[in-house]
Nucleic acid binder design. Structure first.
Lengths: 224, 224
DNA sequence: ACCTGAACACCGTTCAAGT
DNA sequence: ACCTGAACACCGTTCAAGT
């Protein structure tokens, strides 16, 4: 009695697995996600997952793409030469905030979009908008790349939180300028937020300079 | 006969373990590093490692710091208000090249310097130099943070290499602007190199603007 | 002090078996 | 088609035992 196999309605679905995996990773980190633990959370046995995904990596891939899907891209809808800078800024803020909500997922995004649809949508939107705004394709590619460098780098790990909250860790003989470093940890959010905004402003100011130079010279030559 | 325990000279040392671990991670990635595999590579049994390190994570920490130790910091020796930009540029290039030599190690650096001596030396050098160059301490902290964001982000994973080398992956209906994306993979190094230099130049141009504004107003107020 | 094998509580994945 | 338990080849780490 009590037949356990093959219920009339499937117990699992790809979406349910991905949701549960994402919640587990958010709550306890990547290391906490084992197929057995995930299955237990779903109330099934470990091997059941393999009816829906081929490997654990495929599950993680889907989790990563779910995060990419949360990035707002609407600011690129009508970008033109006037407002590429504003669009880039707003996108960067939305991008960072999507990643910051799921910091443990960031390393999974390191591999690039691959075949993940949401990741490709992001690349498509920013590249298309920059070209429409007047950037030559090669420069538009660079912008997509360099923005990703900066944003994933800022979401990968807190700068301020990387310093221990313990003054005795910073011997003045070894680190003469880190006398206040132990204070960084407790001001983590403010410090990282300010550094991100400062860097983003600098990046966009610098790109605006290159844009000016480019349109003036009508993008003659290979940049320079 | 053939007494196996306690030889007169230790078989292992922390340095030997770290070297071997780094070589293994470089060659086969983080996932290939298990304590048992590492021990086998060293010709000892798995538990032997625990005489020299408390956990596997401690070994990885030491590997990460060995990479940080390869970053050139000499450009900060005599930085002043005239050449902070050049120093920052040269440091960024050296930093990126150190990480690019060991891409699998980059995720380990995400946590920040913590108590790792080489990581702290880097933070100390750049912060000290920026303050000496005339940047207010809060801005010097931001510069250290934002440069780390950009550099680790660029080393974490190739942008161009994140796209699959297969034109059929980019359906024009879904991704109207990615018609050439499949070409990125084969031009990986050039594309990433150019994006890095473009971004670095933009970042430094933008910071120079902020520096100008700051010294003119004698850093009145909280930046503005 | 520094190495060993045995052992514990885990992993990801395969597979034959059930309905 | 979709779930099961058993099984395989792994993990990180602890520990008593050896010298």
């Amino acid at each position: 009695m009590c037949a356990m196999a093959r219920p009339r309605k499937p117990l699992l679905s790809r979406d349910l697995i991905v949701e549960t995996a994402a919640a587990l990773v958010d709550a306890e980190g990547l290391a906490a996600l084992s197929t057995r633990r995930l299955a237990a959370e779903l109330g099934v046995s470990g091997p059941s997952l393999y009816n829906h995904f081929r490997t654990k990596d495929e599950i993680l891939d889907a989790v990563a793409d779910a995060v990419s899907a949360q990035i707002d891209l609407s600011m690129f809808d009508e970008t033109d030469g006037r407002d590429w800078r504003t669009a880039l800024h707003d996108w960067a803020v939305s991008y960072r905030s999507a990643l910051a909500d799921h910091p443990h997922v960031v390393p999974l995004l390191a591999e690039g979009p691959g075949r993940r649809p949401a990741g490709l949508k992001v690349a498509d939107a920013v590249f298309g908008a920059m070209v429409r705004a007047g950037w030559p394709p090669a420069q538009a590619t660079s912008i997509g790349a360099l923005m990703r460098y900066f944003i994933t780098g800022s979401a990968l790990g807190s700068f301020a939180g990387g310093f221990v909250d313990d003054a005795s860790a910073y011997d003045p003989a070894d680190y003469p300028h880190l006398g206040q470093a132990h204070l960084l940890a407790e001001r983590q959010e403010v410090v990282d937020e300010r550094a991100f905004e400062t860097g983003l402003t600098a990046l966009l100011d610098g790109l605006a300079l290159q844009y000016e130079t480019g349109v003036r010279g009508q993008w003659a030559g290979r940049s320079s």
